[in-house]
Design a protein around this nucleic acid. Structure first.
Length: 423
RNA sequence: GGAGACGUCGCAUAGUCAGGUCUAGUGCGCCACCCUGCUAAGGUGGUAACGGGGCAACCCGUUCGAGGGUUCAAAUCCCUCCGUCUCCGCCA
């Protein structure tokens, strides 16, 4: 939820953000109207309520005829209070509805849609398979050769976009995620294994029920949502709390399964495990002071790049355009690895600065020096996912179908230097 | 799944049976000051969040797990839901 005070004091800033995202700037005026209506209806209700309370005290003390006279007055007043309360509640709901439809105010993100990102840098050498004298295989062919990935049986058991990781494939995912978790712990993150089913208010609070609500699985019978990332649970972890940031940011590394309906991506990335309904992820999550958020964002990006270096993949970093940001994000950087068989970049990490947007809805605050409270900033970033296997297999494949294991990963695979096809 | 107990402003509790003086009391903790050679002890005062109004002192409203209801009036009575604990059943 955006800051109502910002909306009142600087509506043009919010309008400009809406335009940059390709969203409707008129929502700003709708919100201002709703806010004005809410305030006037609220003060009418509050005045009536104050009168009702003071009369109530007189009723308690009064006797006989005097009491009867007061009761006659208060009965009518009770009706008025009730109706004005209902009006005020409606106005409040209307304001909330409009506020939730406004995405976070962007901070530095380039304007435009998915194609309007800015490439910040490229790191590492892309392999020249022609020069090496062989045609690269795609990750599924390699994965099947290694008996590491089984999409046929995934589909048999659970349907399209499901898979089994088998044998060395399962070990490879555990290795990647354990390496990610170890790095996070070394950097001072608190490791967390999080719930993957959450309540509606948690899902709503993190901003995932906005424009992309179709992406989210819902369990109708229990009124619970399956999370698409442990970010949801980690953001909800300190909801309705006043936290202590006097020792700097609070950092958590969440390990979880992630579930996505992929409703809008029919026909895209249907082969292999690039785009699937369930995968696993290690996610960094920070709570920090708003003025420290931009620097923290750079730190999270730095830790992502450290992981990219450990798996020895060529990648680039992009500054995502406003229209391609999630509703909670003010700015987002992605690390994309090169995918040789498709000759394109594939998103492996994504780090978002959500400023105070999530914390406001979730009620995460810090105590200020003057004794009041204010919302914290929240940030998140990927440290490893199942999808990394795709880039790792393709980039490190050898002519015979075996796959080179990056040095940093070897301790997590019992010292294995090469993944080889099993017979 | 069945039975019961419980949920109060950091923590612990009073208040709920008998609705109005609850503007939610008290203890602990915390903060400030006093006392003191230092510390401990002691004394005094202050200590929930959110919203509205005001330059401000301050005023008003909402919140006693959540949401409804009864009533002139609800922490207190009724209903639904959520959570915690104890016991039983079932299953890893």
């Amino acid at each position: 939820m955006i800051d109502l005070r910002l909306l009142r004091d600087n509506p043009d800033v919010v309008r400009a953000s809406q335009v940059a995202r390709g969203d409707d700037p008129d929502l700003v005026d709708a919100a201002l109207d709703a806010d004005a209506r809410r305030r006037s209806s609220l003060s009418e209700f509050e005045n009536l309520r104050a009168e009702q309370k003071s009369l109530g005290k007189q009723v308690a003390k009064a006797q006989g005829d005097e009491k009867q006279a007061l009761l006659a007055r208060t009965k009518q007043l009770a009706q008025d209070v009730k109706s004005h309360q209902a009006t005020a509640a409606e106005a409040e709901q209307e304001l909330e509805r409009v506020l939730y439809s406004i995405a976070n105010v962007i901070e530095g993100a380039p304007a435009g849609g998915e194609e309007d990102f800015v490439e910040l840098k490229q790191v590492g050498e892309r392999r020249d398979f022609a020069a090496e004298g062989f045609e690269p295989k795609d990750h599924l062919e390699l994965g099947e050769g290694l008996r590491a990935i089984d999409t046929k049986r995934g589909a048999k058991v659970s349907g399209a976009r499901f898979y089994f990781l088998t044998g060395i494939g399962a070990r490879l995912e555990l290795a990647l995620l354990n390496m990610a978790m170890d790095q996070a712990v070394q950097e001072g993150f608190t490791p967390m294994i999080t719930p993957t089913l959450v309540k509606p208010e948690t899902m709503q609070g993190t901003g995932f029920l906005g424009a992309h609500a179709d992406e989210v699985y819902r369990l109708e019978k229990d009124d619970l949502y399956l999370v698409g990332t442990s970010e949801v649970a980690l953001a909800g972890y300190h909801s309705d709390e006043i936290v202590d940031l006097s020792d700097g940011p609070m950092r958590y590394a969440g390990w979880s399964a992630c579930y996505r309906r992929e409703a809008g991506s029919a026909g895209r990335d249907t082969r292999g495990i690039i785009r699937v309904h369930q995968f696993h992820k290690v996610e960094m999550f920070s709570y920090c002071a708003p003025e420290d958020a931009e620097a923290e964002h750079q730190r999270l990006l730095g830790w992502e790049e450290t992981m990219m270096a450990k798996v020895e993949l060529p990648y680039r970093v992009i500054d995502t355009a406003a229209g391609d940001l999630g509703s909670s994000a003010a700015r987002k950087f992605d690390c994309e690895a090169w995918l040789p068989t498709q000759e394109r970049w594939l998103e492996l990490t994504s780090t978002s600065n959500c400023t105070t947007f999530q914390a406001r809805r979730l009620g995460v605050r810090v105590r200020t020096e003057d004794g009041s409270t204010r919302n914290v900033a929240t940030l998140n970033g990927t440290l490893g996912t199942t999808r990394w296997i795709v880039a790792l297999l393709e980039n490190h494949q050898q002519a015979d179908g075996s796959v080179y294991v990056p040095e940093a990963l070897r301790p997590y695979l019992g010292g294995l230097e090469l993944l080889e096809p099993t017979k």
